[in-house]
Design a protein around this nucleic acid. Structure first.
Length: 270
DNA sequence: CTGGTCACCTGGAAGC
DNA sequence: TGCTTCCAGGTGACCA
């Protein structure tokens, strides 16, 4: 499920319940995730107090005094708080136990990750080369214009390049380009300053809207079982091939870019 | 450096 | 009904 909004919603849901709590146990049932769960993770974490939870790109960073637990949800991961010892579902791979409650990682496809980073965490290879946060003030039209010079790849693929801007996945890349009225196949270097001035706010608005929608189902997202990640979220184009465009009543089309599906409205996006 | 392709893994839906 | 094929929200490795 997770693109940036889902990861941020998870972070906001966990923070008030877990900040200041001490890890009492770690249970690893399946260590084979994207990277192996470190064998010494329990030694690192048990007995330590969680100081806070941050997010960088789609990574969740659980801060402890002497290190950081990095979590990534991959394509299918979720983190939920459950009563300690709650019945297990298939693919419930790891429990981080905080006394009477446990943070449970569920991830059918196992593209997610749990790693221990020693300070300075931002120097870790997974974090060191990440681009700008799309919801930060650093993500400006001028910045995007400069970053796309010399890039012949399609703007949709550049939007999804985490060395440029982080957190924009396959759904929100299509949605953002629709909002901006830009053809996803446009070579990035050919985006004018004026088009960058449309695209940057479109990305921010798309992510903010998803955050607002997810926020309304936050309780379910974190606490209950198998809850939907989205609260009746309506997409403009994603997964709507052949259906009428919500703006012009033309027909939404799909194509493949770099082995990923792209959805767009040929009339609204040029 | 860039851009293109593939692999990792499981499960659900569609096709036959 | 059962088997096969395709597809899925991410991202790093590998190649030219």
């Amino acid at each position: 499920m997770p693109e940036l909004p889902e990861v941020e919603i998870t972070r906001r849901g966990l923070l008030p319940d877990l900040a200041g709590k001490r890890v009492s146990a770690l249970v690893v049932r399946q260590a084979r995730l994207r990277y192996p769960v470190p064998p010494d993770l329990a030694q690192r974490m048990v007995g330590r107090v969680l100081a806070g939870v941050e997010r960088r790109a789609k990574y969740l960073l659980f801060d402890f005094v002497d290190g950081v637990l990095l979590a990534h949800l991959g394509m299918s991961g979720s983190l939920r708080l459950v009563p300690t010892g709650a019945p297990l579902d298939k693919h419930d791979h790891v429990d981080i136990v905080f006394g009477s409650r446990a943070l449970r990682l569920h991830d059918p496809r196992r593209f997610g990750a749990l790693l221990w980073l020693t300070p300075p965490a931002q120097h870790h290879p997974l974090l060191a080369h990440l681009g700008v946060e799309p919801l930060s003030e650093a993500f400006t039209p001028q910045w995007l214009h400069r970053a796309t010079r010399g890039r012949s790849a399609a703007i949709k693929q550049v939007l999804m390049d985490s060395r440029v801007v982080v957190g924009v996945g396959n759904i929100y890349a299509s949605e953002s380009l629709f909002r901006a009225g830009i053809d996803p196949r446009t070579p990035a270097r050919r985006l004018s300053a004026a088009r960058c001035a449309r695209l940057v706010p479109a990305v921010k608005q798309t992510l903010e809207a998803a955050l607002a929608a997810g926020g309304s189902s936050l309780r379910d997202f974190v606490h209950s079982d198998g809850s939907p990640g989205y609260f009746q979220q309506q997409y403009y184009v994603y997964d709507r091939d052949g259906q009428p465009c919500r703006k012009c009543a033309g027909t939404v089309r799909s194509l493949r870019q770099g082995n990923r599906s792209t959805f767009y409205c040929p009339r609204c996006q040029r």
